[in-house]
Design a protein around this nucleic acid. Sequence first.
DNA 1: TGGAAGTCGTTAAATCCTTCACATAGGAAC
DNA 2: GTTCCTATGTGAAGGATTTAACGACTTCCA
Lengths: 215, 215
Amino acid sequence: MDLEPTKIPQATAKRLPLYYRFLNNLHSQGKMRVSSKELSDAVKVDSATIRRDFSYFGALGKKGYGYNVEYLLSFFRKTLDQDETTDVALIGVGNLGTAFLNYNFTKNNNTKIKIAFDASEERVGTEVGGVKVEHIDDLEEKMGDLTVAILTVPANAAQGIADRLVKAGVSGILNFTPARISVPHHVRVHHIDLAIELQALVYFLKHYPLEDEEF
Amino acid sequence: MDLEPTKIPQATAKRLPLYYRFLNNLHSQGKMRVSSKELSDAVKVDSATIRRDFSYFGALGKKGYGYNVEYLLSFFRKTLDQDETTDVALIGVGNLGTAFLNYNFTKNNNTKIKIAFDASEERVGTEVGGVKVEHIDDLEEKMGDLTVAILTVPANAAQGIADRLVKAGVSGILNFTPARISVPHHVRVHHIDLAIELQALVYFLKHYPLEDEEF
DNA sequence: TGGAAGTCGTTAAATCCTTCACATAGGAAC
DNA sequence: GTTCCTATGTGAAGGATTTAACGACTTCCA
């Protein structure tokens, strides 16, 4: 492991999937080459930042030319492990969970929801987005060796489920719950808090007028 | 406007709604005082960062004591404009949109979804989460003076709707679409890209082993 | 009343990230 | 070939954010 040329900054790492998706778009549009400026317009990231990001992986482009879409794409495919699919579990088949299940992740994507759990007897046994819904009581039994979970349960259930997930061997949790969950140090949790995102946007609108930003 | 003591860093601003929510929790639990350390455990933000964040607003605490929950709460209520509710529109009543509509935002929150739009004849006219669903064709007519919109439509419709929203006077868009939308410079867009969040988590798990982080 | 324990507010250092600016190399044209 | 043009890759500067560290002030308890 850790064959990275050097350690990639986290900020860069977060943008990689974004680049990858847009490169895919370009590729399927038949585009052969792309400049950092064009890509910048598409993904709304400064072109210097894009060049800097790419440069962490070495010289991927050609001066005066830009980047070869196909080459860049195949490079990122390897770098982002797009060849091997990562299977994930989803806990909580409410509206949000259903949205995920119906989302066609595997297109342009190395992740796939393999199994879903819910507490409601009505939902257990049904199939949503091609994924069978299991009962939450069977979580430990049926998780298999999945190590990533999407948490879309009610807030008050979050910590309890998280504990069970960790015990079942999960090392990454995407938490959509308003609760901030506690986990052992070796488990990575990314919080996405919808209410807070909305509040933050409103706050920025009121207190950080844009006006002059960019031209 | 801009009566801020000094300009608050963006990173701090993004954490304010989080603090606010947890202070509310503490308050309803009857807690009278809280230290930065306790708050740190609850929201998973370093205690020094919390003290630094608070200090932008002046001396809110007492040395050797901590913070008075009620005082802090009422201070943030003012700062975060929790008194006046901000009404927002939601475009696209799919699974994700429905999740938002059913989410009880106004509890602990200054935002409220006032109106929803969808293109499907089936959904138009129904009520979801207490909000009436209007037809997307009536967007301009029925937006009124709402200035914030949540965008939960299919990716290929995103730019078109965004254009119409901007024309209708919207200045803030919370974009859940995989598309990166283009807007005039005075409009603020926050992107939340579910697929990318998941991919980023997987990438971090594979390439940034935790092990020693925090103890 | 006095001393120990606790916790803030803040200075300063350390990190991390973005952006500028430009030398340089490669492609395109002819 | 030669010249012009374009767009990369990166050194350096500038911002932004986090974290450590500690003086100062409070509470608490004997």
